[in-house]
């Protein structure tokens, strides 16, 4: 429960209000898995859960992409190389790539949701022959909000990568429309495919339903839930979601396990 003291060694501005921090830890963490999260503590401000956006081989160096939406995330985004912060983790259950081995794969990311999915794509690329056809569908608010453009361009050399934005901008010649419309561009059959979906909850609901309509099974869809995680160890109860605790039972869940609860409006 005690945070490890860490230091920012690099800071990359990804877009408006979004930065990636490369963080060096004083003590190595347990090797994280794709989809897990750390609690990042901005000293004097507070602590927030942030997914790992990469799973580097060195366990004393971690990468987090942070979107500035509140006091704590703002303080984290303002950190500069040399600044210190506290880190606890890694926590939770991440993406399960096992059922995707030997199958076709769809990765659907909306906005900052690409950050926790980046390790999934990197894992697939590192063992490309273990997977079938892979389509990566990316949605963002505007072209300026698209994350990791250099990486996604490189992915397109060996994966089908489709990108769309909700709002166009001068000079943008890519697609405009919601991310679910990109499903129609997938060149392979989605029956028996495994899908990894992350983004705003509304986007994940519509994304999962669109995948079901295309023949993906509910068990074949994994989503990364976001709730108010404060302790990250099931003690505080803030992230309770029905019978589940998002911090320890998730944040990644099979769609079949959360679908019915997402329809309960008070949860």
């Amino acid at each position: 429960m005690t945070p490890t003291v860490a230091r920012v060694v690099d800071r990359v501005v990804e877009g408006p209000g979004t930065v990636t921090l490369v963080i060096e830890l004083s003590d190595a963490l347990t090797a994280p898995a794709p989809g897990q999260f750390n609690m990042l503590w901005a000293y004097g401000v507070g602590e927030v859960p942030i997914s790992l956006c990469a799973v580097p081989p060195l366990t004393n160096v971690i990468l987090h992409t942070i979107h500035d939406v509140g006091a704590v995330s703002h303080a984290l985004c303002e950190l500069r190389p040399g600044d210190q912060l506290g880190v606890r983790g890694p926590f939770g259950i991440g993406w399960d790539l096992t059922p995707a081995r030997g199958q076709d794969v769809v990765v659907m990311a909306g906005g900052i949701g690409l950050a926790p999915l980046r390790p999934v794509v990197e894992a697939i690329l590192a063992d490309r022959e273990a997977y079938g056809q892979v389509a990566v569908l990316l949605g963002a608010r505007t072209p300026n909000d698209l994350l990791f453009p250099a990486e996604t361009a490189a992915w397109s050399l060996s994966l089908q990568v489709e990108t769309t934005v909700d709002r166009s901008a001068p000079g943008w010649t890519g697609d405009v429309g919601v991310v679910t419309t990109l499903l129609g561009r997938i060149r392979h059959n989605l029956t028996d495919a495994v899908a990894f979906v992350c983004g705003p909850e509304v986007m994940m609901r519509f994304g999962a339903r669109a995948l079901l309509d295309r023949g993906v099974s509910a068990e074949g869809i994994q989503v990364s839930m976001e709730r108010n995680m404060q302790c990250a160890v099931t003690m505080c109860g803030h992230c309770q979601f029905g019978e589940l605790f998002v911090c320890s039972d998730g944040p990644v869940f099979p769609w079949a396990r959360v679908e019915s609860m997402l329809g309960v409006r008070e949860l």
Partner: peptide
């Protein structure tokens, strides 16, 4: 129409919280 409604929601925009 559904796609347009979703875009009107502006789901990727998160209003700053305190």
């Amino acid at each position: 129409l559904r796609s347009t409604h979703l875009r009107l929601l502006d789901v990727y925009h998160r209003a700053p919280t305190s």
